[in-house]
Amino acid sequence: MDLVVNGVEHSLDLDPRTTLLDTLREHLGLTGSKKGCDHGQCGACTVLLDGRRVNSCLILAISQQGASVTTIEGVDHPVQQKFVEHDGFQCGYCTPGQICSAVGMLDEVAKGWPSAIGDEELTDAEIRERMSGNLCRCGAYPNMIPAIREAAGR
C-alpha cells in the first residue's frame, strides 16, 4: 500500500493487522508518535490524517491507502515554541500527541467547529474540553493551556 508521511511517499507491504501507529514507529522509524494505552484513551499516538487529528493506534494502516499523514516529526507550528516557553511538559511522553492534537484542534477552531463548552472565544475551559482526548500523567496541563492559548494568538 501507499502512504504519504510528512510529505514523503512510502510503498509498504504490511500485515493487515498493522495499525497506523505501528507502521509509523516500526516500519518507518518515526518514533515520535507514542504508544501509551494503545486503545484510544490517552492520545499519545495522535497524528494528523489528511489534516485531521486522529488516534493512530485505532486505525488499520491498510484502510488508509493513499492517505497523507503528518507526525510530530513533520509538524512546524508556533505551538511547539509555546510549549517550550511555558514548560508545557515534564517527562515529555505525551508531548508529541499533545502538539499534534493542539495543531488539529486549532484548525477545528478556525473552521468554527463547536465544542461541548459552547463559548464564543477560545477560553481556557474550551481548551481543556477540546484537548480532553490527550492525557498527561505528569499533570502538566496548567502550562499547556497558556501555551495553546498564545499559539492561537490570544
Partner: peptide, 16 residues
C-alpha cells in the same frame, strides 16, 4: 443532536 455528539468521545475519535 450536535450537543450529544460533542458530549461523546474526544476530538480525535469524533474525527474517525
Amino acid at each position: 443532536l450536535s450537543e450529544a455528539l460533542l458530549a461523546g468521545a474526544s476530538g480525535q475519535l469524533r474525527n474517525m
